[in-house]
Design a protein around this nucleic acid. Structure first.
Length: 220
DNA sequence: AACATCAGCAACCGCGTGCAA
DNA sequence: TTTGCACGCGGTTGCTGATGT
Protein backbone atom coordinates (compact mmCIF):
# COMPACT_ATOMS: atom_id res chain seq x y z
CA UNK A 1 0.00 0.00 0.00
CA UNK A 2 1.50 3.28 -1.02
CA UNK A 3 1.46 6.55 0.76
CA UNK A 4 -1.71 8.44 -0.02
CA UNK A 5 -1.07 11.70 -1.78
CA UNK A 6 -3.24 14.07 0.14
CA UNK A 7 -2.23 17.48 -0.96
CA UNK A 8 -5.04 19.76 0.01
CA UNK A 9 -3.95 23.17 1.08
CA UNK A 10 -6.41 24.75 3.42
CA UNK A 11 -6.22 26.85 6.49
CA UNK A 12 -4.06 24.96 8.84
CA UNK A 13 -5.65 24.06 12.08
CA UNK A 14 -3.21 25.21 14.68
CA UNK A 15 -2.69 23.44 17.94
CA UNK A 16 -6.11 23.37 19.50
CA UNK A 17 -7.27 25.87 16.95
CA UNK A 18 -5.30 28.57 18.61
CA UNK A 19 -3.65 30.22 15.64
CA UNK A 20 -5.72 33.10 14.63
CA UNK A 21 -3.54 34.26 11.74
CA UNK A 22 -5.07 32.90 8.57
CA UNK A 23 -2.19 31.22 6.85
CA UNK A 24 -2.52 28.53 4.26
CA UNK A 25 -0.74 25.46 5.53
CA UNK A 26 0.45 22.41 3.71
CA UNK A 27 -1.54 19.32 4.47
CA UNK A 28 -1.60 15.77 3.34
CA UNK A 29 1.28 13.48 2.59
CA UNK A 30 4.75 14.52 3.55
CA UNK A 31 7.39 14.82 0.87
CA UNK A 32 10.95 13.54 1.24
CA UNK A 33 12.15 17.13 1.28
CA UNK A 34 9.84 18.01 4.16
CA UNK A 35 10.97 14.94 6.06
CA UNK A 36 14.58 15.95 5.57
CA UNK A 37 13.95 19.49 6.76
CA UNK A 38 12.09 18.33 9.85
CA UNK A 39 14.67 15.70 10.79
CA UNK A 40 17.49 18.17 10.31
CA UNK A 41 15.85 20.80 12.47
CA UNK A 42 15.05 18.37 15.27
CA UNK A 43 18.57 16.96 15.16
CA UNK A 44 20.00 20.35 15.98
CA UNK A 45 17.28 21.86 18.14
CA UNK A 46 15.53 18.89 19.67
CA UNK A 47 11.92 17.76 19.55
CA UNK A 48 10.37 20.44 21.73
CA UNK A 49 7.94 23.27 21.07
CA UNK A 50 6.35 21.96 17.92
CA UNK A 51 4.89 25.27 16.93
CA UNK A 52 8.35 26.77 16.89
CA UNK A 53 9.71 23.77 15.02
CA UNK A 54 6.97 24.16 12.45
CA UNK A 55 7.77 27.80 11.77
CA UNK A 56 11.55 27.81 12.19
CA UNK A 57 12.20 24.73 10.15
CA UNK A 58 10.76 26.38 7.10
CA UNK A 59 8.00 23.84 6.81
CA UNK A 60 4.62 25.23 5.93
CA UNK A 61 3.01 22.84 8.38
CA UNK A 62 1.27 23.15 11.69
CA UNK A 63 3.05 21.97 14.81
CA UNK A 64 0.68 19.11 15.27
CA UNK A 65 1.47 17.76 11.84
CA UNK A 66 5.22 18.00 12.48
CA UNK A 67 4.89 16.23 15.81
CA UNK A 68 2.87 13.42 14.32
CA UNK A 69 5.29 12.95 11.44
CA UNK A 70 8.26 12.85 13.77
CA UNK A 71 6.72 10.49 16.29
CA UNK A 72 5.28 8.10 13.76
CA UNK A 73 7.91 7.99 11.05
CA UNK A 74 11.03 10.02 11.48
CA UNK A 75 12.25 9.43 14.99
CA UNK A 76 15.07 6.92 15.39
CA UNK A 77 14.51 3.22 16.16
CA UNK A 78 11.08 3.22 14.66
CA UNK A 79 9.80 -0.12 13.40
CA UNK A 80 7.46 -0.24 10.46
CA UNK A 81 5.18 -3.08 9.46
CA UNK A 82 5.64 -6.81 10.03
CA UNK A 83 4.09 -7.04 13.45
CA UNK A 84 5.28 -10.35 14.79
CA UNK A 85 3.13 -12.99 16.44
CA UNK A 86 4.66 -12.12 19.79
CA UNK A 87 3.85 -8.47 19.32
CA UNK A 88 0.34 -9.28 18.20
CA UNK A 89 -0.17 -11.45 21.23
CA UNK A 90 1.07 -8.71 23.50
CA UNK A 91 -1.22 -6.18 21.86
CA UNK A 92 -4.18 -8.46 22.42
CA UNK A 93 -3.28 -8.99 26.04
CA UNK A 94 -2.62 -5.35 26.72
CA UNK A 95 -5.80 -4.30 24.98
CA UNK A 96 -7.73 -6.73 27.09
CA UNK A 97 -6.30 -5.09 30.13
CA UNK A 98 -6.23 -1.46 29.08
CA UNK A 99 -8.85 -0.99 26.39
CA UNK A 100 -8.14 1.56 23.67
CA UNK A 101 -5.24 3.20 25.43
CA UNK A 102 -3.03 2.97 22.42
CA UNK A 103 -0.20 5.07 23.69
CA UNK A 104 0.15 2.87 26.76
CA UNK A 105 0.07 -0.24 24.63
CA UNK A 106 2.62 1.25 22.25
CA UNK A 107 4.83 1.99 25.20
CA UNK A 108 5.23 -1.74 25.74
CA UNK A 109 6.21 -2.38 22.13
CA UNK A 110 9.59 -0.82 21.41
CA UNK A 111 9.68 1.01 18.10
CA UNK A 112 5.93 0.82 17.60
CA UNK A 113 3.68 3.86 17.61
CA UNK A 114 0.23 4.30 19.00
CA UNK A 115 -1.05 5.17 15.54
CA UNK A 116 0.34 2.00 14.03
CA UNK A 117 -1.06 -0.17 16.78
CA UNK A 118 -4.42 1.54 16.58
CA UNK A 119 -4.53 0.99 12.81
CA UNK A 120 -3.40 -2.58 13.20
CA UNK A 121 -6.06 -3.20 15.78
CA UNK A 122 -8.83 -1.65 13.73
CA UNK A 123 -7.90 -3.40 10.51
CA UNK A 124 -6.70 -6.79 11.75
CA UNK A 125 -7.20 -7.66 15.36
CA UNK A 126 -10.73 -6.40 15.88
CA UNK A 127 -11.88 -8.59 13.01
CA UNK A 128 -9.93 -11.50 14.36
CA UNK A 129 -11.57 -10.98 17.72
CA UNK A 130 -15.03 -10.80 16.19
CA UNK A 131 -14.57 -14.03 14.26
CA UNK A 132 -13.14 -15.65 17.36
CA UNK A 133 -16.22 -14.59 19.29
CA UNK A 134 -18.46 -15.93 16.59
CA UNK A 135 -16.69 -19.26 16.88
CA UNK A 136 -17.09 -19.12 20.64
CA UNK A 137 -20.79 -18.39 20.21
CA UNK A 138 -21.20 -21.50 18.16
CA UNK A 139 -19.60 -23.51 20.91
CA UNK A 140 -21.23 -21.59 23.79
CA UNK A 141 -24.52 -20.07 22.54
CA UNK A 142 -25.08 -18.54 25.97
CA UNK A 143 -22.43 -16.00 25.05
CA UNK A 144 -24.61 -14.61 22.26
CA UNK A 145 -26.41 -12.19 24.54
CA UNK A 146 -23.17 -10.71 25.68
CA UNK A 147 -21.82 -10.39 22.20
CA UNK A 148 -25.03 -8.89 20.86
CA UNK A 149 -24.47 -5.85 23.00
CA UNK A 150 -20.77 -5.63 23.59
CA UNK A 151 -19.94 -3.41 26.50
CA UNK A 152 -18.55 -0.07 25.58
CA UNK A 153 -18.78 -0.49 21.88
CA UNK A 154 -18.09 2.89 20.44
CA UNK A 155 -19.81 4.30 17.42
CA UNK A 156 -18.26 2.51 14.52
CA UNK A 157 -18.64 2.36 10.81
CA UNK A 158 -20.64 -0.69 9.81
CA UNK A 159 -17.71 -2.33 8.12
CA UNK A 160 -15.09 -1.76 10.71
CA UNK A 161 -16.20 -3.27 13.96
CA UNK A 162 -14.15 -2.03 16.83
CA UNK A 163 -14.54 -3.99 19.97
CA UNK A 164 -13.83 -1.76 22.86
CA UNK A 165 -13.49 -2.84 26.40
CA UNK A 166 -15.38 -0.26 28.38
CA UNK A 167 -13.54 0.72 31.44
CA UNK A 168 -14.74 1.87 34.80
CA UNK A 169 -13.23 4.78 36.58
CA UNK A 170 -12.23 3.66 39.99
CA UNK A 171 -12.10 6.59 42.35
CA UNK A 172 -10.61 8.78 39.67
CA UNK A 173 -7.71 6.46 39.15
CA UNK A 174 -6.70 5.10 35.81
CA UNK A 175 -8.96 3.15 33.54
CA UNK A 176 -8.73 -0.54 33.28
CA UNK A 177 -10.05 -3.11 30.96
CA UNK A 178 -13.02 -5.29 31.58
CA UNK A 179 -11.40 -7.26 34.33
CA UNK A 180 -10.22 -4.85 36.96
CA UNK A 181 -9.54 -6.91 40.03
CA UNK A 182 -8.38 -4.45 42.58
CA UNK A 183 -9.85 -0.99 42.83
CA UNK A 184 -6.57 0.18 44.26
CA UNK A 185 -4.64 -1.05 41.27
CA UNK A 186 -2.82 1.93 39.84
CA UNK A 187 -2.75 1.43 36.11
CA UNK A 188 -0.85 4.65 35.50
CA UNK A 189 1.90 3.48 37.80
CA UNK A 190 1.94 -0.01 36.41
CA UNK A 191 2.24 1.25 32.86
CA UNK A 192 4.59 4.07 33.61
CA UNK A 193 7.46 3.11 31.33
CA UNK A 194 9.71 5.92 32.35
CA UNK A 195 10.82 3.99 35.38
CA UNK A 196 13.38 1.23 35.33
CA UNK A 197 10.97 -1.09 37.11
CA UNK A 198 8.71 -0.98 34.10
CA UNK A 199 11.28 -2.58 31.86
CA UNK A 200 12.43 -6.11 31.41
CA UNK A 201 11.49 -9.51 32.66
CA UNK A 202 10.17 -8.45 36.02
CA UNK A 203 7.52 -6.25 34.51
CA UNK A 204 6.60 -8.92 31.99
CA UNK A 205 6.17 -11.42 34.79
CA UNK A 206 3.98 -9.04 36.73
CA UNK A 207 1.92 -8.44 33.63
CA UNK A 208 1.47 -12.13 32.90
CA UNK A 209 0.50 -12.72 36.49
CA UNK A 210 -2.06 -9.93 36.38
CA UNK A 211 -3.44 -11.14 33.09
CA UNK A 212 -3.68 -14.67 34.45
CA UNK A 213 -5.73 -13.36 37.35
CA UNK A 214 -8.06 -11.61 34.94
CA UNK A 215 -8.59 -14.82 32.98
CA UNK A 216 -9.46 -16.67 36.19
CA UNK A 217 -11.82 -13.90 37.17
CA UNK A 218 -13.56 -14.05 33.80
CA UNK A 219 -14.28 -17.73 34.10
CA UNK A 220 -16.22 -17.18 37.30
C1' DA B 1 -11.16 -4.26 -19.62
C1' DA B 2 -13.95 -1.40 -16.84
C1' DC B 3 -16.15 -0.43 -12.87
C1' DA B 4 -17.39 -1.10 -7.90
C1' DT B 5 -16.23 -2.22 -3.46
C1' DC B 6 -13.04 -3.34 0.18
C1' DA B 7 -8.95 -2.95 3.06
C1' DG B 8 -5.00 -0.66 4.87
C1' DC B 9 -3.05 3.20 6.72
C1' DA B 10 -1.26 8.13 6.86
C1' DA B 11 -2.89 12.15 8.42
C1' DC B 12 -6.33 15.23 10.42
C1' DC B 13 -9.50 16.80 14.07
C1' DG B 14 -11.39 17.75 18.51
C1' DC B 15 -10.84 17.47 23.16
C1' DG B 16 -8.59 16.97 27.67
C1' DT B 17 -4.71 18.03 30.60
C1' DG B 18 -0.74 20.37 32.50
C1' DC B 19 1.66 24.39 33.23
C1' DA B 20 3.24 29.06 33.27
C1' DA B 21 2.08 33.87 33.36
C1' DT C 1 -8.00 32.06 40.24
C1' DT C 2 -8.12 32.66 35.48
C1' DT C 3 -6.46 32.39 30.94
C1' DG C 4 -3.95 30.91 27.07
C1' DC C 5 -0.54 27.99 25.13
C1' DA C 6 1.57 23.55 24.15
C1' DC C 7 1.22 18.92 24.04
C1' DG C 8 -0.68 14.28 23.78
C1' DC C 9 -4.35 11.08 22.97
C1' DG C 10 -8.08 8.60 20.72
C1' DG C 11 -11.42 8.73 17.07
C1' DT C 12 -12.26 9.59 12.36
C1' DT C 13 -11.49 10.69 7.57
C1' DG C 14 -10.20 10.04 3.03
C1' DC C 15 -6.78 8.44 -0.34
C1' DT C 16 -4.68 4.54 -2.73
C1' DG C 17 -3.96 -0.10 -4.21
C1' DA C 18 -6.07 -4.68 -4.16
C1' DT C 19 -9.69 -7.56 -5.11
C1' DG C 20 -14.15 -8.88 -6.82
C1' DT C 21 -17.85 -8.75 -10.34
Amino acid sequence: MMVPTRSKSINGNGDGGSNSAKKVMNRGAWTAEEDRKLSQYIETHGAKRWKTIATKSGLNRCGKSCRLRWLNYLRPNIKRGNISDEEEDLILRLHRLLGNRWSLIAGRLPGRTDNEIKNYWNSHLSKKLVSQREKDMQIHPALSQEVATPPGKTKTPENSPVVVVEVEEEGGEGKLGEGCLDPNFDVEKFFNFSTEASCGLEWANMFMELEGDLMMDDRQ
